[in-house]
Write a protein that binds this DNA or RNA. Structure first.
Length: 275
DNA sequence: AGCGTTAATTAGGTGT
DNA sequence: ACACCTAATTAACGCT
């Protein structure tokens, strides 16, 4: 078989001096050298032809071209693998964001409904009614915790005010977190560095979990949850911690808005968080 | 026939 | 000028 193959190759070379397919043995020999040294010098290539009988019928120029093409192939394969990895992460992130979007849309519908209901109540009742609605809104939308403003609340006594505060805080959180998240994954077509982007999302309906990091940040959500729940660890890695405000909940608990700056969850980056 | 692989070619850049 | 490189492209071949 090999002999037939070799003779076929020989015939090809005789018939058409343009295209030659090297034999598996020749490729194997070249691969061995490539694994030791992907970029052999001219001298090393000449030595290869002299010392390896199986390669003696290949021109020095062909050997050079083979190594060029081999390097090119490796680069393409690595790039292909990298893109597949990025694609998997982007798909996972997309799924999470779709879920988050869906949940937020439902929350908006609910809040719009409650807003209408509150307006109706206000119109139909006297102005002296005690307003407990803020807590009910907070708890219905966010069972565990609620992002609030770093600035003092402008109007924390109304659902709309609380919602505005929550949105403002979320925006602040994202603007800080997206700039400092750790272990970036390079975006397609983007060089690694400060212009890479990532997304950190806050999950406001997960009982017992304050936030989750997802998307391009290469950190398992469960790991983030562990860190966030392990409050003593916050202080261990904490550079700066400030309780911005404390909001009492209807069931005797409290929601603390905490701004903290920590030294990396996994690597040496500094991250800002609101929890 | 279409497609993947790969040897060979070409263009443009770099270092000596 | 020359050798060599990368990147893009071409073309031959084998497989399905």
């Amino acid at each position: 078989m090999a002999a037939a193959l070799n003779s076929k190759h020989q015939q090809q070379q005789m018939d058409n001096n343009k295209y030659v397919r090297y034999t598996p043995e020749q490729v194997e020999a070249l691969e061995r050298v490539y694994n030791e040294c992907p970029k052999p010098s001219s001298l090393r290539r000449q030595q290869l032809i002299r010392e390896c009988p199986i390669l003696c019928n290949i021109e020095p120029k062909q050997i050079k071209v083979w190594f060029q093409n081999r390097r090119c192939r490796e680069k393409q394969r690595k790039e292909s693998f990298r893109l597949q990895t990025v694609n998997r992460k982007l798909s996972a992130m997309n799924k999470l964001l779709m879920e988050e979007n869906d949940r937020l849309q439902k929350q908006v519908s609910h809040l719009v409904y409650e807003n209408g209901y509150m307006r109706q109540q206000l119109q139909s009742s006297s102005a002296t009614t005690t307003d407990n609605s803020c807590e009910s809104v907070v708890m219905s939308g966010q069972q565990q915790q609620n992002p609030a403003a770093q600035q003092p609340p402008k109007d924390a006594s109304s659902p709309a005010g609380l919602l505005a505060i929550a949105e403002e805080t979320l925006a602040q959180f994202l603007s800080k977190a997206t700039g400092t998240a750790v272990d970036w994954v390079q975006m397609i077509g983007m060089k690694p560095g400060p212009d890479s982007i990532g997304i950190v999302a806050v999950s406001r309906n997960c009982s017992g979990v304050a936030a989750r990091v997802c998307g391009l940040v290469s950190l398992e959500p469960t790991k983030v949850a562990e860190i966030l729940k392990d409050r003593p660890s916050w202080f261990r890695d904490c550079r700066c911690l400030d309780v911005v405000s404390v909001i009492p909940t209807g069931n005797g608990g409290t929601i603390e808005l905490v701004y903290m700056q920590v030294v990396s969850l996994t690597v040496e980056a500094v991250s800002d968080f609101f929890c």
